[in-house]
């Protein structure tokens, strides 16, 4: 309270003066710049008949590659306003019913969700294959496959079980399971194949990839659950372990599974409403089809080259006009 009045007054006056100068300066400099325009052509593009297209983006890079390309084509060629929504699968499916999601462009099986939303709630319909083949299985880092070639046969795994031991596996070999998004049969497989292994839950894809990356870099022993297409395989080409071959129905009883995972035909799911809307975006989603290599390339642009999804999609679309034209014909 005891500030000397004149001193305080002086600093205050100085401050007021400074504030005034700032205002003046801002006004003066402001007069020079370019003005913010109204809605320019090309930036919005909501004028097309497509309207808004709600595209779910599930949290893995391969999906992001699909979504980037579909979104890019929808915006550039069809004039849609694309709203990408970053969602886990379960929530994305839920979104069909609430009208918040129009399409999922890479679906891995999920028979339970298909049953619930396509058959029971009738809020979703299938929209065909993406052309990608989904492979799930057990993998080892490449150095291991090279040094011990027989390790890629499941019968030989027990021989090396103690090498795979970690602090988490309680005396047995460790089989690292990953993303909790998938129902895996691994625990049953280990049991039914009578392997001296224990399933350890890494808990996330991030944890799994980091584990494989580290294992390859440090020449560590690691056996883990993985899948393709996956961008990481273009960085570290993991080797798949051969399990007893899949035969139709061999995985019917989850308790007694003793065979490899089926190869998934990755497909697209759209909401019923979207399918009936006649939107050109629906036709695009339905026609969208490419190869594992295509996806891996775009995924690599995003994950390894750190391009934005938009830039990665643009690069790929410009390089593959034929494929794109077939989708939007």
């Amino acid at each position: 309270m005891a500030t000397h009045p004149t001193a305080a007054g002086r600093t205050v006056r100085w401050r007021a003066g400074a504030a005034g100068a700032v205002v003046l300066g801002l006004v003066l400099t402001g007069c020079g710049g370019a003005k913010v325009g109204g809605s320019d052509a090309g930036s919005g593009g909501s004028s097309g008949k497509c309207g808004t297209f709600n595209l779910a983006v599930n949290p893995w890079v391969g999906y992001e590659a699909d979504a980037a390309v579909v979104a890019y084509v929808a915006e550039e060629k069809l004039g849609c306003t694309v709203k990408k929504k970053d969602l886990k699968e379960e929530i994305a499916w839920q979104g069909f019913g609430t009208g918040e999601v129009d399409a999922i462009v890479e679906n891995w099986g999920h028979d339970d969700l298909k049953k619930k939303y396509i058959e029971e709630q009738k809020t979703a319909v299938e929209a065909g294959s993406t052309g990608n083949k989904g492979v799930i299985g057990w993998y080892v880092p490449p150095w291991l496959a090279k040094k011990y070639p027989d390790i890629t046969k499941w019968e030989n795994l027990d021989k090396y079980a103690d090498k795979f031991r970690t602090s988490e596996s309680g005396g047995k070999g460790q089989l690292l399971d990953g993303d909790p998004s998938y129902v895996t049969n691994d625990a049953a497989l280990v049991k039914n194949l009578e392997l001296d292994f224990k399933v350890v839950y890494a808990g996330s894809e991030t944890a799994l990839i980091q584990a494989f990356r580290q294992a390859e870099a440090k020449k560590q022993w690691l056996l883990g659950y993985f899948y393709e297409p996956q961008w990481f395989l273009s960085e570290v080409p993991l080797a798949k372990v051969e399990l007893p071959p899949y035969k139709a129905g061999c995985d019917a009883d989850a308790e007694k599974v003793a065979c490899d995972y089926p190869v998934y035909d990755l497909d697209k799911i759209v909401s019923k409403k979207f399918a009936d809307s006649g939107s050109p975006a629906y036709d695009l989603v339905k026609n969208f089809n490419w190869t594992n290599d295509d996806q891996n390339l775009v995924a690599k642009y995003i994950a390894v080259d750190k391009m934005t999804p938009e830039a990665a999609a643009e690069k790929w679309v410009k390089a593959n006009p034929g494929k794109v034209d077939a989708w939007v014909k």
């Binding site: 379960e90 339970d112 993303d179 909790p180 890494a202 944890a207």
Partner: peptide
């Protein structure tokens, strides 16, 4: 968060429940 990096148990149960409808 621990469930995402290998803690298993309750943390993993919660994460898995969030990801898979059957485990909700």
């Amino acid at each position: 968060v621990g469930g995402l990096v290998g803690a298993g148990a309750l943390g993993y149960d919660v994460v898995a429940g969030f990801s898979q409808g059957e485990l909700y």
